[in-house]
Amino acid sequence: MSTTESPKRDKWQWETATAGAAAGFATVAVMHPLDVVRTRFQVNDGRVSHLPRYNNTAHAIFSIARSEGLRGLYAGFLPGVLGSTISWGLYFFFYDKAKQRYARNREEKLTPGLHLASAAEAGAIVSLCTNPVWLVKTRLQLQTPLHQTRPYSGLYDAFKTIMKEEGFSAFYRGIVPSLFLVSHGAIQFTAYEELRNIFVDLKSRGSTVHRENPDQLLNSVDYAVLGASSKIAAILLSYPFQVIRSRLQQRPGGDGVPRYIDSWHVVKETARFEGVRGFYKGITPNLLKNAPASSITFIVYENVLKLLKLARKE
């Protein structure tokens, strides 16, 4: 590799990170209320007293808006924005870097297995970096007027209080299901890449545009369909890990004892009292949030990437 190629590659990686961060911010800003509803459904096992009962997604949104106002619908918004922006930025950065590494000395395109390995590698790194932020977001979303313990006043107060009351290790509650959730990103990005190749193949037939320049073949509608389709596949296969993580990340009661000890304890208790259905609680608002959110993410990502490429050429 020449010395001129290395700076170009590094610049490209930062462009993908910037596009990913912009996509993550746009996604959270639009879809956060559904994220609050999903989290509350996920942890409501029918045996907790500090969470209101909601009949369905619409009832939950109207109930939260009526009793808690806009602040309730956007509980945990700051860590949500922070976590999502950092996560998407790092994810696209490490995903692209892994693909480049696997692509060295390969004349043909990457196989689905290598796309999967790239996405899994990126997801594991991101999980380790962002778990504390997601834990704080979950706890802020679960604060309701029925809460018995002193509520966190915000992001900083939550970090400070958790460190004081539970210690640093508390920030990594739920890390095991988070690492299993790497499969979510791996499934999504592998599906996205493979579907994208199919779209390019279909659109390149009879087109004067060379298929090696797919940016000119695909548009925002294509990116929306690709993003939503790949996200739905990933959700259906990995959703139980999200439920396990949310239940582990709940704030301990007044006695300081966590509701669940570890991931296996969540699995046993959920299966015992709720059955298989318990592992899919909140999946409706999750699909409503993430299918269109993934469309927004990839529309923003691909279009920001196009703009950055144009700017680089100029």
Rank of each mutant, 00 (worst) to 15 (best):
T4F: 12
S6L: 15
P7Q: 13
P7G: 04
K8H: 11
R9N: 10
K11R: 14
E15N: 15
A22N: 09
A22D: 03
A23S: 14
G24P: 07
A29D: 05
M31R: 11
H32D: 06
D35V: 14
T39W: 06
T39G: 01
Q42F: 06
N55A: 15
A58E: 07
A60W: 06
S63Y: 11
E68D: 04
L73V: 04
Y74E: 01
A75E: 06
G76E: 02
P79R: 07
G80V: 03
G83Q: 04
S84A: 13
I86K: 10
I86N: 07
S87D: 09
L90N: 03
Y91T: 06
A98Y: 09
A98L: 11
E107Y: 07
T111R: 13
A117Y: 01
A117F: 05
A120T: 13
A120M: 14
A122Y: 01
I125T: 11
V126N: 05
L128S: 06
L128V: 13
C129S: 12
C129Q: 10
P132H: 10
V133F: 11
W134A: 07
L142S: 04
Q143S: 04
Q148P: 07
T149S: 14
G154Q: 05
L155W: 09
D157V: 02
I162R: 09
I162K: 09
E166L: 07
G167N: 05
F171I: 02
L181Y: 12
G185P: 00
T190I: 00
A191W: 06
E193L: 00
V200I: 14
D201F: 10
G206A: 05
S207I: 02
V209L: 14
N213R: 13
N213C: 02
N213Y: 11
L217I: 01
S229F: 03
K231G: 01
L236W: 08
Q242S: 12
Q242Y: 12
Q242W: 09
G254H: 04
Y260V: 01
Y260A: 03
I261R: 14
E269D: 12
E269F: 03
R272A: 15
R272D: 12
G275M: 08
V276A: 15
V276D: 05
K281R: 15
K281T: 08
G282R: 09
T284C: 10
K289G: 08
P292L: 11
A293W: 08
A293I: 07
F298H: 13
E302V: 01
K306P: 01
R312T: 10
